[in-house]
């Protein structure tokens, strides 16, 4: 991870630690809720919230109960994802945060070139720019959704929130959370977010929701990554900094909202971008955080590079 150390950016660390703080907040909220689930049951509406927010768990509940009302947290998450992409994965998901907060040997590797970061075919050639990938996570999601009504419930093995919940309880109870340990090992070898981007069925569902949001006009209204093509030098720093291994941001040739369904809006690319005003995280027209020199107020009079062009 990390960008070029020679370029100092006052906003960079702020962005980095803001997200870390949010992640730690949700992770500790998750652990405390899990802890609070012991007897006597709390009367908090937040009880089980992380499990009820899970659309895959809601699928489970819906298949047999057939009631929509108890599913409102899951539906709310899907709705927010229509409007703002996979923010849940980058900022909220306790399993994703745990994988990312645990130091990974993978980060110590030398930063790679964008050519090496682009997806490669099985034979080793880079995939052409327009090629559609058969992403494993979609296959897994499809398999889970198809197998579920047939009576094969594999959600327990692959649903990230269930894994996280079970692992927390297992740790409290003093038993060993094998699935979590396996995922941590995977993070050491393949990078902290390999699971999230390539395998996680919930991530696949939220990616699909984001793609649907683009069609339906949701289009990252609440939270968006915005690119300024005129400023972009296509250096590839964003791609090498992306924990989710996305190269599309670097390859994109137009200004405006970056509509990549797999993007978790974590802002690591904004942090790594060496060019003033090339990338920014934008919410409702306001620039939350921007790459080097980018002013945090929208349309700063300082210069043209301070502006975000809305599409």
């Amino acid at each position: 991870m990390g960008g070029d150390r020679r370029v100092r950016n006052p906003h960079r660390r702020f962005l980095h630690w803001t997200r870390r703080a949010v992640q730690v907040f949700f992770l500790s909220a998750f652990v405390s809720l899990s802890w609070a689930a012991s007897y006597p049951p709390s009367r908090l509406p937040a009880e089980n919230l992380f499990l009820r927010v899970d659309p895959l768990g809601a699928l489970d509940a819906f298949y047999r109960a057939g009631a929509f009302l108890p599913l409102w947290p899951a539906l709310a998450l899907l709705f927010l994802s229509l409007l703002s992409g996979r923010f849940f994965c980058g900022w909220v998901c306790p399993l994703g945060s745990a994988l990312e907060l645990v130091p990974s040997v993978h980060r110590l590797r030398k930063r790679r070139k964008i050519e090496d970061l682009r997806p490669r075919s099985v034979s080793g050639n880079p995939l052409p720019a327009g090629a559609r990938r058969i992403r494993a996570k979609y296959l897994l999601l499809l398999a889970l959704v198809v197998l579920f009504p047939l009576g094969v419930n594999l959600l327990w093995l692959f649903d990230p929130l269930v894994i996280a919940n079970r692992s927390a309880i297992q740790v409290f109870a003093g038993s060993i959370p094998f699935v979590l340990l396996g995922l941590l090992a995977l993070a050491q070898v393949m990078g902290p977010r390999f699971w999230c981007q390539e395998i996680c069925p919930l991530g696949a569902l939220l990616s699909a929701t984001t793609a649907a949001g683009k069609v339906l006009g949701g289009n990252h209204a609440l939270l968006a990554l915005v690119k300024e093509e005129d400023a972009c030098i296509h250096c590839g720093h964003c791609a090498s900094a992306c924990p989710f291994a996305i190269t599309e941001v670097a390859d994109l040739r137009e200004s405006g909202k970056v509509n990549v369904p797999d993007c978790a809006l974590c802002g690591e690319c904004v942090k790594a971008c060496p060019v003033r005003g090339a990338l920014a995280l934008v919410s409702l027209g306001k620039v939350l955080l921007a790459s080097r020199g980018f002013d945090r107020s929208f349309g700063h009079p300082e210069g043209p590079e301070g502006e975000v062009r809305e599409k």
């Binding site: 997806p119 075919s121 099985v122 050639n125 090629a131």
Partner: peptide, 21 residues
């Protein structure tokens, strides 16, 4: 210098991910 894009292809990462699954 790259062959014409096939409509759908599978990448190494995806294959690896399937392997992990």
């Amino acid at each position: 210098g790259i062959a014409r894009p096939r409509l759908v292809s599978i990448s190494r990462r995806d294959l690896l991910a399937l392997g992990v699954v």
